[in-house]
Design a protein around this nucleic acid. Structure first.
Lengths: 265, 265
DNA sequence: TTCGTTGTCACCCACTTAGTGACTACATGT
DNA sequence: ACATGTAGTCACTAAGTGGGTGACAACGAA
């Protein structure tokens, strides 16, 4: 999904550690120690580009995370826990945090049910759009119509469709090339395929989705010129819900008409 | 382990979200929207104590996380994804990150094997100490001697001991009260128990550990006066590795002598 | 004693972010 | 059309954080 630029392992590890909340110095120090196994402030400083005088701060930070132990001698020596232990520690830590978040959110959720929506909501970024699509698929009860270019028919989407199909939701898929069609037919036997009713075949097209005839989503790839499909941020979608919703009305009309036409072909 | 003060759900949720990298405003905005389901900047501002004029920034931030969609109207309206979806999203995100970290760390690990350690390393904080203990247990090959007060003989430790026992490691446990002894006997049938050779029974004692006769750890609870066991930060340990290690030599002597004495009782 | 090393501090600068207010565009009712 | 309150944008301040650098005293080995 998100294309991780394959840099050297050090930079990569440092980046990840920073995202976990470590300071840049702490992250660099950790990686240096991870390669050294054990070392003094000067060792770390030379390997990691961290100013020697700040290694001590960094180590202190790492100590608070329980990732590094210190040997009280002169010069001080620093010791890191193993890579595997580090990862497990982060995993455990994070599990706690998500659990806490889940609890807290569910405890405050005494909300009035969402009312009928009249407007149109917008989503930016391919990841977010896919997320929304998956969420809607998961809530589908009767029918899913989904049309897209192949690049956006990724694993997750197929899985979600397959899940829905198992629940007895009727699936109608459009716009996929014949080779992908075969694969889809295997995974989702009940799916109906229809030819790209892509009137706008050349436009920087994204997706067209309708669920249960009352929830619709349209996306487009902006910057049609440059690296469009490459950049995951370039997709923008709008969606709407409810029988009276304007976007729903329009898309339902289009879909119904086209699908009827195709049916009678 | 870490005692989470049970505040109201909102504060709790906000705190967690901030730890995930959201700004305070974004976190508060999200929680407000989570209770409202949908709302305008003013709605959010009133519920969340976020200045109205900054709700827009906050929403933008949330949009980049894919947590909120915007309805382009006047007034703008904001929509949040469900609590469950939010949590799953964080979990997925985090899984990717730990995977990336694990890959990066393992790729750079061409390290010279840790040399024999001569010094003594120190660890602070109960969580970190337990972590170290578990790591050493996991690496044990022949024998584990572990002595502690009951409060520090928690689930994780017992599990790790049990794991080791299954690998054929001989377990010797000391200092546990009789009621806990029963439970341990059930979980780790092969374990040998010995009476608290706690010569220093009244001292703010922590743990005493020896693995394979060549890796030892001692911990103590500082601030013996005040809330000692309550505060997880109050434990400090030192450990050492290697046959020539001074701490190892001393502890090995003590343990061997005491255990021999007990054996011959 | 001397000199290089080690550890601690203090400082600066850039950047982020919480918090506030000015100002324009807009929508509504009269 | 006008007036008034609301909505959205932008600019600004203040505080805190974190990267980066240097001063300096304590230490250790020749």
């Amino acid at each position: 999904m998100r294309s991780t630029p394959p840099k050297d392992p050090e930079t990569d590890a440092i980046e990840q550690l920073e995202r976990f909340g470590l300071s840049a110095y702490a992250a660099r120090t950790f990686v240096a120690l991870a390669s050294l196994g054990t070392g003094t402030a000067r060792d770390v400083s030379q390997v990691s580009e961290v100013p020697r005088t700040r290694v001590y701060d960094a180590v202190e930070e790492l100590q608070e995370w329980g990732l590094v132990d210190v040997r009280q001698s002169s010069p001080k020596e620093f010791w890191v826990i193993s890579a595997e232990t580090t990862c497990r520690r982060f995993e455990r830590d994070f599990q706690h945090r998500t659990d806490a978040l889940r609890t807290a959110l569910s405890e405050l959720e005494p909300v009035e049910q969402r009312a009928e929506q009249r407007g149109v909501w917008t989503v930016n970024g391919q990841a977010a759009v896919t997320d929304r699509v998956l969420e809607f698929f998961a809530a589908a009860e009767e029918e899913i119509v989904y049309m897209t270019i192949e690049d956006l028919l990724i694993e997750d989407v197929i899985d979600a469709l397959s899940e829905a199909a198992k629940r007895g939701v009727s699936i109608k898929l459009g716009g996929v090339s014949s080779d992908v069609q075969e694969r889809v037919q295997e995974e989702i036997p009940g799916a109906t395929m229809f030819e790209s009713l892509w009137v706008w075949s050349d436009t920087p097209a994204g997706r067209l989705m309708m669920v249960d005839g009352r929830k619709t989503l349209v996306s487009a790839l902006v910057n049609g010129e440059s690296a469009s499909v490459t950049d995951p941020r370039s997709e923008t979608a709008i969606w709407g819900e409810g029988d009276a919703n304007s976007l729903v009305v329009v898309l339902k009309a289009i879909f119904t008409w086209r699908l009827d036409t195709i049916d009678s072909d």
